[in-house]
Structures are given as structure tokens and as C-alpha cells.
Simulated assay, not measured.
Amino acid sequence: MSFSTSRASASALPSAPSPDPSAHPLAPYGWDDDWAAAFAPHLERGLVPGRVVRVDRGQCDVVTADGLVRVDTEFVTPNDPLRVICTGDWAVVDAGGDPRYVQEYLPRRTAFVRSTSSKRSEGQILAANVDFAIIAVSLAVELDLGRIERFLALAWESGAQPLVVLTKADLVPDALGLSYLVRDVEDTAPGVPVLAVSATDGSGLDVLAAVVSGGTTVLLGQSGAGKSTLANVLLGQDVMLVRAARDVDGKGRHTTTTRNLLVLPGGGVLIDTPGLRGVGLYDAGSGVGQVFSEIEELAAGCRFQDCAHVAEPGCAVIEAVSDGELPERRLDSYRKLLRENQRIVAKTDARLRAEIRKEWKRRGAEGRAAMEAKRGRRA
């Protein structure tokens, strides 16, 4: 699915069932019957549910049926960085006590994870239990299609439905130019809705508001992409601080410094995130495959099952590039993200490391054999 400002409709975009606000005090925050069933064993122990709206150095703000409380996370600070409590989690909180504690959290439905910049390439969880992942991209600067593909891979891997929102559409001088930009992103994001919006003239915002009213949405993008402005428009008030982006490259300073979960007046909740300079993949193989689904489909026609789509005979992917059916830029980006993801996974997967070394040796032997044969022909 793909939509531009002029032809998008609220009914055409995906949506999640909205909870009945009268059913439970936490329903506006996403509480539903399935969460209630998962929490039932804890309820019998006198514990109460709450949704994490902000995490800050060993403490977090949790909204419960009795209101917002600040609780300690001492009992849920494991060594595994992917198991630390996160904005969007449904927490199990003690009913009383001073201080109060989060005992644990309910199993996550989805989790948005990226690789950190550390040498150990640990995963960092950015948001949990998300239905939609909005990837905000500014039209004030030249489109970076490779970065969009990277965000999309992480979004698909998380289990959420991605949506690319092209902000600052009013800066594009004409409708034809805007339609070309939307089409470029559509070609980069198969199966993903693409929506051009403007906080200045309001175009596309009614459609976006209809989408986010149906569940939990995380807002992602680089600094200067207009995320805080989008959040303020959706919230109907200036909650998030906004700073101007530089004209030369569209970059701005981080106006959002923590991940905050906010209830939207039209229904649904929004998790705003700081601008992401680095968007490293973390075990996102299936997400990469989803982003480049046309390449995965073409690969089924390759002569060799383990075809690397480089120079193998009978490669359907290379043939599609030669015929102009597949842009070479897409194949280059696909290879790059696959290599990056493989390196990350190999650091924690001994079996995969052995397979990679074996593959390198095989290709090295083939290369040496080819060179020796070439020398023999010359002799």
C-alpha cells in the first residue's frame, strides 16, 4: 500500500482496534482483554498493572489505574540489555510500599531494537508493544533512500507496521515534484504506506491522526526530521520542544532527550523518541528481507540456492539488474544491509561465525583456482 497527500484516505491505511475507554481506566493507554488475561496471575498476588511512560536511570514513570507513579526498577535490571524495562512495557507493580517497585513486565508483543555503537554490538531496545512505527523523513533536504531502507528493516523486524511520513511537504515547490518524491519512497518501501504531510498548511495530518488513533505508535527519525512538530500537532498542544533545523543539511539538535509515551486526544498513544544519528541493525534478517521483498522473490529463480547475487551464472537477480527491472542501487543496499546484519549476528552466534569463515575459505579457494587457471591459459 502507498499513499500520497492528495490520494490518501483514513480508511485505506492500516489500523488496530481501539479499546473501549469505559472498559478500564488504562484502556486509553492500550489495555485490552489480552493484557488483562496475561496479568491475571499477578492480580491474584495483589499486584497492579501499569504502562511505562518514561524510563530514567533506575526509575520509571508508570501510569496505573490510580494515576501516575514513580517506581524503582531494581528488580528488573538484568544483564541482558534487551530485557531492561522500556517505554511502552506493561509493568507489574506492587500495590503499596515506599518506595514502590516494578516486579517484572508482561511478555512483549513487539519490540523495536537497534544495535548500539559499542564494540560489543549490543542491542538497545527503544520501544515496546508498538503497533505502528512512523519513520519521519524531512523533504527539506535530499532524500536518503538507504537510510529509509535501514529504518524500515528495523521496523519490520520489530513486528510493528511501518509507515513513512514525509514531513515539510509545503517546502516542495509543486505538486508534480512532490508526487515524484513520494513515488521514489514508495519504490523503496514495498508494502509500506507513504504519506506526505505539512504542519504548516495541515495537509495529510487528518489521515495521519486517523492512523495513530488505532493503537500504540512510535515516532522515529533523524534530528531535524520534524518529529517533535508532528508530535505537537497530533497531541493538539505544544508538549514537545521544537528547534529549527539547519538549512544546509536539515539537521537539528536533539529536542527530545527521552522516550515518552503520551495519550493522544483522538485515541491511541504516541511514543516520541530522540533523533537517531546511528541506526544499526540488530539481528534484523527477516526485516531486511521484507524491505527488499522483490529481490527475495527474484532470488527464488536463481540457478544456485546459495547464490550471493554477485557474479554467479544463472543469477536471476543480476539478470533483473541488467534488464533494468531492478535498480542497481537497491541491490547494492540489499547487499550492504545483509552484510552488516550478518556481522552483528556473528558476534554472538558461534555457529554462524564458523559458517562465515567456511564460506570465505570456499570463495578464496575458488578465486585462487580461477587465477591459476588463468595463468595456465596464458602460459
Rank of each mutant, 00 (worst) to 15 (best):
S18D: 11
S15Q: 11
S138W: 05
T256Y: 06
S18V: 15
V288H: 06
G250S: 09
V63M: 11
R335V: 04
T256A: 11
D249F: 06
R353N: 10
V310P: 05
R339D: 15
E186T: 13
P21G: 09
L220D: 00
T348P: 03
H42N: 08
L262V: 10
D144P: 12
V55L: 07
D201T: 05
T229W: 00
T229A: 07
E328K: 12
G221R: 03
V141E: 15
V48I: 14
P14T: 03
Q222S: 15
Q290W: 12
T273L: 12
Q305Y: 11
P162W: 07
D94H: 05
A127S: 12
V113I: 15
R51P: 00
D131A: 06
W35G: 02
T348Q: 13
E312F: 07
E325A: 14
R353W: 10
D72T: 14
S15I: 05
V141M: 15
E294I: 09
I148W: 05
D201V: 05
Q290Y: 10
V53S: 03
L205W: 01
C60I: 02
G236R: 01
W35K: 13
C315R: 04
S213G: 08
V182D: 01
V192W: 06
D131T: 03
S213Y: 01
P265H: 02
G236W: 01
W360R: 13
R83S: 10
G159Y: 00
P78E: 08
L298V: 08
P17Y: 03
G159N: 01
D34T: 13
G267L: 01
V321I: 07
I134C: 07
I134E: 00
F3N: 04
K251W: 11
V242R: 02
W31M: 03
M240W: 10
R109V: 10
D206M: 01
V218N: 04
V248L: 10
G280V: 08
V233C: 07
G236E: 01
G88R: 00
K336T: 15
G226P: 03
G96W: 07
R378W: 13
L26K: 05
T255H: 08
S121G: 09
Q103G: 07
R378I: 14
G224T: 05
E104M: 11
P190I: 05
F3S: 07
R246W: 07
P19C: 00
D98E: 14
V113M: 07
I125V: 15
G224S: 08
G289E: 14
I318H: 04
R277D: 13
D247Q: 13
T348A: 14
Y282A: 09
V242S: 02
Q237T: 10
R147D: 05
P173G: 06
T258I: 08
R368C: 08
A38C: 09
S286T: 13
P14Q: 03
D72C: 11
R120K: 12
S9A: 14
F3C: 06
L241H: 13
R343T: 09
R375F: 13
K251C: 09
D66H: 11
A379H: 15
G275T: 04
V69K: 04
V130I: 14
D94T: 11
V93R: 00
T256D: 09
V93I: 14
Q342D: 14
A320N: 04
W35F: 12
A300F: 11
I271F: 02
V76E: 07
L126P: 05
Y101D: 06
I85K: 00
A111M: 12
A8Q: 01
Y282R: 08
E312I: 12
Y180H: 15
A127H: 04
A8W: 01
G96I: 06
